[in-house]
């Protein structure tokens, strides 16, 4: 197995009296795709947000390439946020600027590329997400699926080592779901490690090397998609059966 690039040790998180995570241990290897499944409100998105410091954990440790990152200040997190990018469920595009400016935003912020270099990189990225010629459109002019793909392009533009997908196929029609999954497969082929939070089990089985199931704040399953489909655990079975309906 490749080197471990992300490690979560004994993560605890609660909101008020509601315990979300109760001792989560997880590792992600270089180039690996990990599917994170679980019922609504089990803290899948919170776990992703905790990894890049958008939420602070109450207890535990998070390591990126052996560097502890859970206690870092916002400023010190910056280099790690370039290496671990986050693709939001809603896309979270900046609605007052164009598609080009959205995708180019990280390049303007973190690189010293010239405008023409940035333009080339954005054009390349738009080709990858199959949205050539849409540079000048505003986010409100795009469909939900297009917005998600632009969000993913923005997350990808700085060549991160890990990408965290927060329900990228949620609320999309089958054609758009396929577009997003195809894009994720392209990125996987580039050797990018990822954590894929989803309720879309067929996509998770197709994309992921490993599937993790969260239930009541704990990991109850952590194995390959094949073993996931054959699991005898009643909770895991529910997920498997729901995908066959």
């Amino acid at each position: 197995m490749n080197e471990v690039i992300l490690e979560l040790k004994n993560i605890h998180k609660k909101f008020g009296k509601n315990k979300i995570h109760q001792g989560i241990n997880l590792t992600l290897h270089r180039g690996e795709s990990l599917g994170l499944l679980g019922g609504s409100g089990t803290g899948k998105s919170v776990l992703l947000r905790s990894i890049i410091g958008l939420e602070r954990i109450d207890e535990g440790e998070i390591f990126f390439k052996n560097n502890r990152i859970d206690q870092l200040s916002e400023n010190k997190l910056t280099p790690f946020r370039i290496k671990i990018s986050y693709s939001f469920q809603s896309g979270a595009l900046f609605d007052s600027i164009s598609v080009f400016e959205n995708i180019a935003y990280p390049l303007f912020e973190h690189t010293k590329f010239s405008y023409s270099q940035i333009k080339d990189q954005v054009a390349e990225m738009l080709k990858l997400i199959d949205l050539q010629g849409k540079e000048e459109l505003m986010p409100s002019d795009l469909s939900g699926g297009m917005q998600k793909r632009v969000g993913m392009a923005r997350a990808m533009i700085l060549n991160p080592e890990i990408i965290l997908y927060d329900e990228p196929t949620a609320g999309l029609d089958p054609a758009n779901t396929l577009n997003v999954v195809e894009l994720m497969l392209k990125l996987k082929k580039k050797g990018l490690a990822s954590i894929f939070v989803t309720h879309d089990i067929p996509s998770a089985i197709m994309l992921c090397d490993r599937i993790v199931v969260l239930h009541e704040g704990k990991i109850i399953f952590n194995d390959t998609p094949i073993k996931f489909q054959k699991s005898e655990d009643p909770i895991v079975r529910k997920f498997v059966l729901s995908s066959r309906e």
């Binding site: 947000r49 890049i52 410091g53 958008l54 916002e74 997190l77 910056t78 280099p79 946020r81 370039i82 990018s85 986050y86 939001f88 809603s90 979270a92 595009l93 900046f94 609605d95 935003y105 990280p106 912020e109 973190h110 923005r154 997350a155």
Partner: peptide
Amino acid sequence: QQVDAIRALG
């Protein structure tokens, strides 16, 4: 979540 996106983009 645009403010979160600003933070997530470093």
